[in-house]
């Protein structure tokens, strides 16, 4: 790792001031992704600001019936928290599908949102990559792109967002609370991560001088009818080829509301609201689920080595909906 200056801050206001004033500065909390990238020379910050001393390690109930996750709560503490396990099992399952216990014990909730893609060209400074080095080109489009996006990619970048947790947060319509030089604001989860477009170097819509303080979960956790499925090369400790979070609000066998979000297939958790709306007031059955899956994969585009993901995504949608609706065949 290359040398850097190290500062520890005790509150968000000072954190914002420090990051605004320092050149090429980065916050560190869990550090499990940042240090990994620094060792590979993918990220070379000159100044590191330790935010673990800020009082953001809490989970508390909100007046509207929701739940607030402090930015610095670890992924393990979140997944095993009683309120999360009982009211947001979809989130708990998704978190536990990701990484390893050792990593989850260190990685924080806000850090999970800010982790970078695991595109192997992004990780290799010897190859061109528009995300790492804007304008240098994309090695994945005509390279070995088995892990890459089938939705929402651009000519500049076909990387995927690697998080499991974020797929569930997108399905739950979480909000991200941030603080910056101009005060506080909250970002709806679907607007937090970006599609690559012409600027794949920007993963999120968080400004450089803003800090995430917490994540709010709405009251409805879809705890009765949910499913998280993660398809990967080995049964544990591997990134998703295709993952899916489904939450259903049901009345009898009729669907009142559906949330369907795919992971491992795009630059951000991939949600198709048109497809979700198709299920409103429909019977929960395989025929309807197949129809929705067809709508979702209609806009998929595969590359040389990842075309299999399109059929995998289609089948995953059907299976996750069947699981969430508790239909056995």
């Amino acid at each position: 790792m290359r040398p850097f200056t190290f500062t520890k801050v005790r509150n968000s206001a000072v954190a914002v001031k420090e990051i605004s004033e320092k050149e090429e500065a980065k916050f560190i909390a869990g550090g499990t992704n940042l240090l990994d990238l620094m060792k590979f020379d993918v990220m070379i910050p000159k100044n590191i600001i330790d935010i673990t001393g800020i009082a953001l390690n809490y989970i508390k109930n909100l007046e509207d019936g929701g739940l607030r996750l402090g930015a610095l709560v670890t992924n393990s503490d979140t997944a095993y928290h009683k309120e999360v396990e009982n009211r947001y099992p979809l989130l708990s399952h998704a978190i536990l599908a990701g990484a390893s216990p050792q990593l989850r014990n260190k990685a924080t909730d806000a850090g999970n949102l800010l982790q970078r893609t695991r595109c192997y060209y992004f990780y290799d400074p010897a190859t061109p990559c528009n995300k790492r080095e804007p304008g240098s080109g994309c090695s994945a489009i005509h390279g070995y792109n088995r892990w890459h996006a089938i939705f929402g990619a651009s000519e500049k970048c076909i990387a995927t967002h690697p998080s499991d947790m974020c797929v569930a947060l997108a399905a739950l319509e979480a909000k991200v609370n941030v603080t910056g030089p101009n005060g506080e604001r909250n970002i709806p989860f679907e607007d937090f991560h970006r599609l690559p477009g012409d600027h794949p170097e920007k993963d999120t819509n968080l400004s450089k001088d803003e800090i995430i303080t917490s994540i709010d979960l709405p009251a409805n956790g879809f705890a009765e009818n949910f499913s998280y499925i993660k398809n990967r090369d080995r049964a544990s400790y591997s990134f998703a080829l295709v993952s899916i979070a489904v939450g259903l609000e049901m009345k009898g066998n009729k669907i009142k509301e559906a949330r369907i979000v795919l992971g491992g297939v795009a630059h951000k958790p991939w949600r198709n609201k048109e497809a979700e709306a198709f299920l409103n007031n429909k019977e929960a059955n395989r025929e309807n689920f197949e129809a929705v899956a067809d709508v979702i994969v209609r806009e998929a585009k595969g590359y040389e080595y990842n075309k299999f993901k399109i059929e995998l995504a289609r089948r995953s949608v059907v299976r996750a909906l069947m699981q969430a609706a508790k239909i056995e065949e």
Partner: peptide, 12 residues
């Protein structure tokens, strides 16, 4: 708590 000691800074 078990952690990966390679991915955390001593100073923290």
């Amino acid at each position: 708590t078990r952690i990966n000691s390679c991915l955390t800074l001593a100073v923290m």
